[in-house]
Every structure is written in structure tokens, then in C-alpha cells.
Nucleic acid binder design. Structure first.
Lengths: 210, 210
DNA sequence: ACTCTTACTTGACACAGTGTCAATTGACAT
DNA sequence: ATGTCAATTGACACTGTGTCAAGTAAGAGT
């Protein structure tokens, strides 16, 4: 849609997002992004001091476009802890595919660039707050299993919901997105919301059903 | 120990392993490895065609030194499926910290180097066989939850036991190794071996206890 | 002693990718 | 007409990988 209406920084970010979201592709270089935007490589540096800062700006734009906060805050209005857990797992689990392209690039950059690592860790720390809130709600209801430490429960939920686990199951094992959601939600319910009955039929997805 | 007894390739791999196992360190370059070995950079290329091949050779040496097969095959002699699951989770979970340094480097290389990705995927596929065997034993005992698909159960166990989850919990959240083992084992037992009672006290580690 | 081989060294180079710098162009505003 | 701002071009430094060629040093075989 009429790209002339956008200022150059936004055009650059938009082009970067498009490249990043292309599946299976190599991670784009600054030259790639410049070419895709239709500007010179130096023009990119004119607006973003480094590749990492560009990636970070891209995630911010993406979050704005996807209205993350709205999606994730829906879980805040749940009546019970269990419902809140369900809502949070569903919301976040369905948000991952939207950010995966950029997440992949930032995770890769994190291995060598400390600045990227900080950005990614911060993002994940934000997500962890949602986990902590869900666990707190469960604790208030008294539905956490006997003797559960809320910090550890938060760590576990947070780990369960990691982008790498989503990647492993959907990209690596070929799981259907719905199957992923159902399974992780059931797993969380069973282990953290004291609903062991959630285990039945937990691993019986039939993604190719008509 | 008298490094003159070792041939150069082994000295190089040994030096690489030492660098890789140094915590928190930057990923070593070919120059770093050469310097640590006490040879020229070109000497390294004389024995290993690429950084990735060197890393792969390093894992092979490490596996030999740690006697992986012996450690992991212990679970084969378990009487019940549940015991086998327990043994496998424990063995693999305790093996991860030993390989983490090298794993970290190979995972990082996988992001850009297809050859490294193949090597890592193969390694993980090997581990998956252990998961599949444990799940098969549970299926034979009939202790898997109702309607569980064994493929999916294997995927889940495999994901649960991923190096990234270990990294997240022990390196990211600061979990004690024993706490990690206990928790993941309990989680696996509860969700895959039909032992929901394993959830009680699951998240109640006290790593700093006297 | 002589040469042959092998392992290793030195130093140069190509290549990709990031990030910087300087000089120039073009458009638009005043 | 001038100044300003965005963007362009082209050069360069730096890091890291991987290649190439010529030289050296030591041990083995005859």
C-alpha cells in the first residue's frame, strides 16, 4: 500500500519485517534490507546506527502493529486463576508465530551481540510478567499443586512458553499451531492448575483431520 | 597432562574444548583456538577444513571421553516404562551440562551454517531415539495417558529435554542442576507416565538449603 | 652425508559483512 | 539565490573465515 506515504525509516522497517517474515530464508544483511527498501545501504545507517538497533526498532513497530498489549491483557479479566492461565497461554502461544521471524533474527544476533541479548532478554522478561501474573492468580485460588514455589512455577511456565519450544514443536516436529496451543495449554493446566484430568487426550491431535 | 604425547589434531580439539567450556566466554575464533593450542592458525586448517568441522570433531572427542552411550544406555535395562523414563531423563539431563559449551557453539553456528545445522539436528535426532524408546516402553506398559499418540509424546518429551530448556532454567533462571533434574523428571512422570501425584512438591526445590 | 617427506610456519590475499567518513546531488523552503 | 536536509556514491577500516604459495625444520631411508 502506497509506500510513498511512509517516511524512510518506516519503509526500511517494513521492508526488513517482510524479509524477516519470509520463511526458511537466510537472515537478511543490511544490504538486503537496503535493496528491499529501494534505498542505498548508507541510507539505512542514516536512520539506524546498527543492525541490532534496526532489529529492535522492527520489533517495536511489529508490536505496535499487532497490538500486543491488547492481546495479552485480555487474560487480565479472567475470573479464576485457571482461566487466566488458559487465556495467557493461548494469547502468547498465538502471538509467537507473528513475531517468529524477527525473534529468530534477534536470537541469532544475541549469540554474538550483547546489545541484542539485552533487547531479547528484556522482551522475554516482559512476557515473564504475564506468566508471573497467571501463577499469582493460581496461587490466590489455591489451585497450585501442594508446596509449589511461585518463583519456580513462573520459571517453568516461562520456559514452557519459550519461543524455542514453539520453534521446536511447530518448525522442527511439524506440529500444527492449534495442536501446539492445545498441548501446551493442557500441559500447563495439568501441572500448574491442579487439573491432572487435562492430560487425557492431551497428545491426540489430528491436524490433518477434515 | 603431557601434551607432547598427543598428536596435533587432538591437541587442537582439546584446546578448543577447554575454550568452549570456559563459562560466559565469547565463542572462540579459529585464531583463539590456534593460540590456545600453541600452533599457527594455518596449522588448524591443516587438520580441519572449517570451523564447523572442527566443532563437530570436538563433540565426537567429547562424546568418546564422556562415554555417552554407556551413560544413556543404562536406561535400557529398566524393568518398567516409568523407570526407563526416569533413567533416561536423569541420564540425559545430567549429560547436558557436560556438552553445553560445545553445544552452545554448534547451536550458534547452526543459525548461519547449514552444515552445522545438520550436525546438530543429527545429534538431537540420536537423543530423540532415547525419548522414543522410553515412550515405547510406557506404551507397552499401558501407562501413557488415554488416547496418547506415541509420536507426539516423543516430540513433547524431546522438547522438554532440549538443551535450550536446560539453558533457560539453569543458566537463565539460576536453577540448581539437581532442581532441574527433579523438576523435569517429575513433569515427565506426571504427564507421560500417568503419575499425576508426581506433581506434588514438584516445584519446591531449595537449592540453597544448608 | 644426502635427499625425501611430513608437519608446521610465515605472510599474503580474497571474500563477506558491519560500520564510518567525505564529497556530491537534488529538492524544497525561505 | 541560498541554506538545509535527505539521500547517493564511493572509499575505507575492521573482523573473521578460508585459500594459496613459499620457506623451514626435523626425522627416516638409502
Amino acid at each position: 500500500m502506497s509506500s510513498t506515504l511512509l517516511d524512510t525509516p518506516t519503509k526500511i522497517l517494513q521492508a526488513a519485517l517482510t524479509l524477516l517474515e519470509t520463511p526458511q530464508s537466510k537472515l537478511p544483511t543490511m544490504s538486503d534490507i537496503a535493496r528491499a527498501t529501494g534505498v542505498s545501504r548508507q541510507a539505512v545507517y542514516l536512520h539506524f546506527p546498527s543492525r541490532t538497533e534496526l532489529l529492535i526498532a522492527a520489533t517495536r513497530l511489529q508490536d505496535r502493529q499487532n497490538n500486543v498489549d491488547a492481546a495479552l491483557s485480555a487474560s487480565r479479566h479472567a475470573a479464576t486463576g485457571a482461566e487466566r492461565l488458559d487465556a495467557f497461554v493461548t494469547a502468547w502461544g498465538n502471538y509467537i508465530p507473528k513475531i517468529y521471524g524477527v525473534a529468530r533474527a534477534i536470537m541469532a544476533a544475541s549469540a554474538t551481540d550483547p546489545e541484542a541479548k539485552v533487547a531479547w532478554d528484556t522482551r522475554m522478561a516482559d512476557m515473564r510478567e504475564g506468566c508471573a501474573a497467571a501463577i499469582a492468580a493460581l496461587a490466590k485460588d489455591g489451585t497450585l499443586p501442594q508446596g509449589t514455589d511461585t518463583e519456580q512455577a513462573t520459571d517453568l511456565l516461562w520456559t514452557l512458553l519459550s519461543v524455542r519450544n514453539w520453534e521446536n514443536l511447530t518448525q522442527g516436529c511439524g506440529w500444527d499451531q492449534d495442536c501446539y496451543i492445545t498441548t501446551i495449554r493442557g500441559l500447563a493446566r495439568a501441572t500448574l492448575a491442579g487439573q491432572p484430568e487435562a492430560l487425557t487426550q492431551l497428545l491426540a491431535c489430528t491436524p490433518d483431520a477434515p
